[in-house]
Design a protein around this nucleic acid. Sequence first.
DNA 1: GTCTATATGTGGATAGAC
DNA 2: GTCTATCCACATATAGAC
Lengths: 213, 213
Amino acid sequence: MPSAPASPSPASPGAASPAPGASGGGVASAGAPAVPVSARDRVLDAFEELLAEQSERAATLDAVAARAGVSKGGLLYHFASKEALAAGVLDRFAALIDDDLAAMRAAPDGPVDYFLRTSIPTDSRFERAIVAIARLAQAADPRARDALASAQRRWLEVLQEAVGDPLVARTIMLIGDGMYYNTALLPAANNVLRDETDIDDLVALIRRFAGDA
Amino acid sequence: MPSAPASPSPASPGAASPAPGASGGGVASAGAPAVPVSARDRVLDAFEELLAEQSERAATLDAVAARAGVSKGGLLYHFASKEALAAGVLDRFAALIDDDLAAMRAAPDGPVDYFLRTSIPTDSRFERAIVAIARLAQAADPRARDALASAQRRWLEVLQEAVGDPLVARTIMLIGDGMYYNTALLPAANNVLRDETDIDDLVALIRRFAGDA
DNA sequence: GTCTATATGTGGATAGAC
DNA sequence: GTCTATCCACATATAGAC
C-alpha cells in the first residue's frame, strides 16, 4: 500500500498492526477504504481531534496515544514532547492555509463568497485544525497565536483586494471571526448562523453592502 | 465605578489584613483609594485576571491565592473547589450582563451603537469577565458555554428589536463576536479594529447598512 | 518503531493548628 | 478566617526491553 504523497517522515509500511483499544482508530473520517495513514499522522489527527472536540486539557499524551492506537512511548518516539506535538499541527496548518488562500483567490464566486461560506461551521479538516489551534492559542501558546494572526492578515489581504474598501474588508473579516468564535465556544446548537439558507442570505446581504460601499 | 450593589455574599468588612507577598495586591485596578474589597472578592478578581490575562492553566489555586494575597487554605475556605471558583465568576457575570443589557437598551445613540462600541477591546471589568468566561468555555466548562450562549441570545434580542431585520441583527452580533474573538485569542497588536476612528467608521458603516436593509 | 515500566513534578483538595 | 503540612491523582517525560 503506497502511503502516498505529502507525508514526510518514516518508512516501513510493512506490518502496522490494526491498533486494538482505540476508538476512532486509524483510517480517515469517511469515504473510501482510504490508504492507512502513518502512525505519525494518526497521532497528529488524534491530537487535533481531542483539542477541537474536547479541550486543551483533554488532549493529554495518554488520550492522544490511545486515540491514535499507539502507546505513550510510541507516541513520544514520533514527537519528543508536547511542544513538538503542537508544532506538528501548526506545520500542517501552514500547508492548509496556503491551499485555502489559493482556493479563495480562485473561487468562481469570488473571495468574499468563498470566505463567508467556508467560515460557517462544517466538519472539514481545515476547520478542525483552526479550532484546535484556537485552543492552543487560548492556552497561551505564542506560536499558535501568531499562526492565527498571520492567517487572519492573509485572509484580510485577499478580502481587501476583492472589495476595495479596507473597512468593508475588515468588517467581513470580523464576521468570519465571529463564526469561528461561535463554533469554538458555544454549544453547537447555538450558532448565530446555522443552515445553508442563513449563509445564502448573509452572502447576498454582504454582497449588496460591499457593492455600494 | 461605585462597587455598590448586586454583590451578595459575606459581611465583615472589618479587619482585612493588607496581604503581604502578593503582586497585584488587593485593591481594585486604579482610581480612588477605594474600599478594601473582601478576601472573597479579591480571590474572584485574581481568578478572573489570571484567566483573562494568561490562561486557564495558569489560573491554578496556588497562583490565584498568591495574587489575591491569601494562602491556598485561605482560598479554599471561601471556595471549596475550583468548580466553586468558576461558579463565583459566573454569578458575578450574571449581574454584569443584566446591567449591560439595561445600558444597551437605554443608550442614547441606540443599542447598535452601544453594542459595537463596547465590543471593541478595552480593559473594563466587564470585558475581563467575558474573556475569563470564554477561557472556561474553551476548557469545556458547560456552565460557561451556557452563560455565553445566553448572553448572546439576549444581546441578539435587543439588536433585533432595534434594527428590525433579523439577518442584519445577526450580522451585527457576529461582528461583535469577532471583536471578542480577536481580543481573546490574538496578540493585542493584531486586532482587526483598534482605535476610536476605526470604530467610528464601523458604526457609521453599519448604521447606513442597517438603515437601508 | 513500539512497548512497559518508572521517575518527577505539580495541581487540587483535606486535616488540623492558630 | 486564615495558615501550614500533607495526601493523592495524574500529566509529562525518561529508560530500557523487545
